[in-house]
Design a protein around this nucleic acid. Structure first.
Lengths: 343, 343
DNA sequence: ACTCGCTATTAAATCGATTTAATGGAGTGA
DNA sequence: TCACTCCATTAAATCGATTTAATAGCGAGT
């Protein structure tokens, strides 16, 4: 059944065990497995037999020490968990992660999940990865700085605050215009924009598109910024106050889904009907948007495609065949009409 | 700013660079970092200073070669993707993964996502992990066999088909009884059970509880098994045929959410109203159940808690402080009443 | 003064792979 | 026959950490 004492002693077979069994040197086994150099056909056959016989599985850590690559990609999001997680912990990040995991594995890369945490530095110190997917980073994103210092390849999903970074463009402008036009078409003439208070490109672009629409339509623009860490509660308070000051509000543009459910709570508290009195639209078409009553009109961002684009861009950055500031564009967003806007 | 030529040459600092800078040996630096042995207070201070100065981050692969541990846990699901993923790729697995990632990181473990794939063997060969979370394994689960051969520690979520394996008990029996009682209370007197065709403990236990109810209430039991790979379509066909043969059906117990949405499609096709003509209940309260119209009555399985239980059990199995057949019990399931059952 | 024990430290071995530089043999051409 | 190239293979160096076994220094006990 076997060759040496060591190999029989129950521990995992090593490349040397295989080499001994096949009557070759470890280097040759390595070449046969990785394909780094040619190996004679007959020799290769003996090696393959030995591998099968010893049930050999290469030690990936040992390989990584030499190659300097660990074959894994991290998905990072520093969005406060009040927003990114919520009760069911699903959402934007997990939807991307699910598709990214599949795309990654097709390139023999593992996908590791790095949830938002109080101490990002200590967290990253213990997780090995060759590159990272960073989800909609804010300007003061704690992960971003760490990754820069480590000079780890990064691809952002969504335009990053400083544009000197490879990313997948999520078409923030087109998405906002889609939502605004729909709000307008569904009869809304006076609607505030509710966004988070941190400095994200998505907020900036959204605000810009919103203000453009307002001036064009002669609507008085009202941009409400809610601290992200307050989550739903902050949005609820915000809409209540806004309606108190201006009862004529007949719609709300609230791109972040967690803030949207907060708005819905506020409207229920005030006894306003949706979509009768107020039409509500949000951006991300996730669990929250769909299980709200009534369900929220949202946008299909094609996140499965986006995840695939991000992974292949990242792999190219890691390999050095793409610049560290290359940009790819997500497919055009598509409106998903639901009852919250009268659809 | 630095010490040796090598350290200045732009490459990542190693433990030797730190040692040189602090005027000690690499072994002492290692001891200071890992806490394996005592290190004098003053020495430690010099080492900490050197670490900060050189921006040293330990090479995790090198560490792993020695320790034999890689500090990561895989989440595996071999449920065919027609069921586990679906359009939006969310679901049971991702909900567990999200909470498990947080629980894992709190123990300095990374969580890697391993989606269902055509070639499980090749997949696992390239992913390093110390232990695995296996989601509701079937009897012929391809991952299970691989993990056994590698003698990798595993914890199943949900009772596995052969019970010789550590797992978190998801209370299949109690869950089914909850759903059946609710169906009965909502007026259903003749309802089939629709489950997948593969050999899972959840199906077996569910079927048993269902048959017990049937004999007790004098209802003719009808258990319909749908091939899992056919997903929604299979369930739609199944309910259509069942209603054709027996128009008196006034409810459906369909625990798998992907099959439940198939049933809803079938009922729409036949023009049956839900919950008016037929009451429908499912088990997993995910995206599908919530975004169905009308939304489906389901069960809160407390998956966030379950994920935490699974991770800590797995860590104990890895450490050897828990038997490879230990069982922990999930919190009792709670009914989530929705319109599909008239709630 | 001498031994014993204890602590902090170090030099060297080790983990399991990849990669480099060296080697031997076969084939070619003059 | 000799010199030369080409090829598959190997021995040894290497990656960066941890761990073992050895050592120096010091204080206490007799």
């Amino acid at each position: 059944m076997n060759t040496s004492d060591k190999a029989a002693s129950g521990r995992r077979a090593t490349i040397s065990d295989v080499a001994r069994q096949a009557g070759v040197s470890p280097g040759t086994v390595s070449n046969a497995m990785t394909g780094a150099r040619r190996v004679d056909e007959h020799t290769r056959a003996r090696i393959d037999a030995a591998i099968a016989q010893l049930n050999y599985v290469p030690n990936l850590s040992a390989r990584s020490v030499r190659t300097g690559r660990v074959n894994s990609i991290a998905v990072l999001s520093s969005m406060p968990s009040a927003v990114s997680a919520g009760t069911s912990r699903l959402g934007f990040m997990m939807e991307i992660a699910a598709s990214a995991a599949i795309a990654a594995i097709e390139h023999n890369m593992a996908l590791v999940l790095v949830p938002p945490l109080p101490d990002p530095e200590a967290t990253l110190r213990n997780i090995p990865f060759d590159g990272a997917l960073l989800i909609e980073p804010a300007r003061d994103d704690p992960f971003l700085d760490l990754l820069r210092r480590r000079s780890t390849p990064v691809v952002a999903i969504g335009t990053p605050p400083d544009s000197t970074m490879a990313h997948v463009d999520l078409n923030y402008g087109a998405t906002t215009e889609l939502l605004i036009r729909h709000l307008h078409d569904s009869g809304a003439r006076c609607f505030p924009l509710i966004i988070g208070a941190s400095d994200r490109a998505s907020y900036a672009v959204t605000e810009q598109a919103y203000r453009a629409h307002a001036t064009q339509q002669g609507m008085r623009p009202q941009v409400i910024r809610v601290p992200e860490h307050r989550g739903e509660g902050g949005a609820r308070d915000a809409i209540c106050q806004a309606l108190h000051e201006n009862p004529g509000i007949d719609g709300v543009l609230v791109p972040v889904d967690a803030l949207a459910t907060g708005v819905m709570q506020g409207l229920r508290d005030l006894g306003r009907s949706v979509p009768g009195d107020v039409r509500v639209v949000t951006r991300y078409d996730g669990l929250r948007a769909r299980s709200e009553v009534p369900a929220l009109t949202a946008v299909d961002l094609h996140l499965d495609v986006v995840a695939g684009q991000a992974i292949s861009l990242l792999l190219r950055v890691v390999a050095g065949t793409a610049g560290a500031d290359e940009v790819v564009h997500a497919p055009p967003p598509a409106l998903v009409t639901r009852p919250s806007s009268g659809g």
